[in-house]
């Protein structure tokens, strides 16, 4: 087990190397002038571009620039983020809790709801229950996320004045900025910090701000999970061992829950794991529409402004997330399916 985990974590080094080389290569296709221009803030400075290129060595060969970047990264210096106006490493820990907070709420709902609806749909195949859940899932899955987010925002905020965008109301945000000594930011997640500081009004306010983003994300993503669960359930219920269980006199509930569902869960674990990993990049559309400054929003802004250190940082982060997710999934598999053994 330990050997397995160690081997997988060693693999992480290669993955990160590959990801960084690939992305660095893509960013190098921009001309040195274009990359230098990101440092220019006014038209008067435009004449400084050749100087900037020379100073930062932007016209050096690819590998020299890459190793220069790598040396700094290994020293723990990820560079300066123009979007955040602070070092990338520091900015990351600022944005990450916002994304993580949304996922802490969204991921369990996506997984539990997907499994529940999928099981229900699979058991009651071709009845109105099945049709309803499937239609809802298809609608959610096929609507563009940004459109769906905008519609929800228009209805609930625009019309009913409920659930404003952002992370926290302006009033409370100002309070936190003005009183750093009475409100400690332990985790950076307001729902949790509110409880830790005994300020339940902040927790509630943060929760209210989470309603729409979490709903949007859940409705858009749950469909995939549900459909995998549904088809798994239908397939497992047609297998011979189900008839064996019936012939033993097992009732429906035992057959569905104890026999079929455990087998049907195997493919769902894969899908759910990938969904959770993917959502760590913060569902860009959700964060942009609801104005939540998390990883997704940061990524979108940085891509527009060609904030290269940020793009590199987020891609490396996603590499780490995917490797660790797959590792967790493999361990989980070995736990659920007795036929799979690690090593």
């Amino acid at each position: 087990m330990l050997a397995f985990i160690t081997r997988r974590l060693l693999l992480l080094i290669f993955v990160l190397f590959g990801v960084s080389v690939l992305l660095f290569g893509i960013l190098m296709t921009f001309s040195p002038e274009r990359r230098a221009a990101t440092y220019v803030t006014s038209p008067q400075q435009a004449k400084d571009i050749p100087k900037i290129i020379k100073q930062f060595g932007l016209d050096d060969p690819f590998y020299i620039q890459y190793f220069r970047w790598m040396k700094e990264v290994l020293k723990g210096n990820m560079g300066w983020s123009l979007v955040a106006s602070r070092p990338v490493g520091e900015a990351f820990w600022n944005y990450f809790p916002v994304t993580l907070e949304m996922n802490l709420f969204a991921a369990p709902i996506v997984i539990i709801f997907g499994i529940w609806l999928g099981t229900l749909s699979g058991i009651h195949r071709d009845t109105w229950i099945d049709h309803t859940t499937r239609i809802l899932a298809i609608v959610g899955w096929s609507l563009p996320t940004f459109l769906f987010a905008l519609v929800l925002l228009m209805i609930f905020y625009g019309y009913f004045q409920l659930f404003s965008p952002g992370v926290l109301s302006d009033q409370l945000t100002m309070f936190i900025i003005d009183n750093p000594e009475t409100f400690t930011r332990f985790t950076g997640m307001y729902t949790i910090d509110g409880i830790l500081n005994g300020r339940f009004d902040i927790t509630l306010n943060a929760l209210a701000h989470l309603v729409l983003p979490v709903s949007t994300y859940v409705i858009v993503v749950v469909a995939l999970n549900m459909r995998v669960m549904r088809s798994g359930m239908i397939e497992e219920l047609s297998k011979d061992y189900v008839m064996t269980a019936q012939a033993k006199g097992a009732d429906k509930k035992t057959i569905y829950i104890k026999h079929a569902r455990r087998n049907a869960l195997l493919p769902v674990v894969t899908v759910a794991g990938q969904l959770v990993a993917l959502s760590m990049e913060g569902s860009i559309a959700v964060e942009v529409v609801y104005n939540r400054h998390g990883i997704g929003w940061w990524l979108a802004e940085s891509a527009v402004q060609l904030d290269m250190p940020v793009l590199m940082c987020i891609c490396l982060f996603m590499g780490v997330v995917f490797v660790i997710t797959n590792l967790t999934l493999d361990i989980l598999y070995a736990y659920i399916d007795p036929r799979i053994r690690l090593n």
């Binding site: 064996t244 012939a247 026999h259």
Partner: peptide, 24 residues
């Protein structure tokens, strides 16, 4: 009929490879 199955009348199937639940 559920109370009869497996209790008064039981069944042995043809395919032993697939008739057992792999995860139990």
């Amino acid at each position: 009929i559920r109370k009869i199955r497996g209790n008064e009348i039981s069944m042995i199937f043809q395919e032993p490879m697939t008739s057992l639940n792999p995860v139990l």
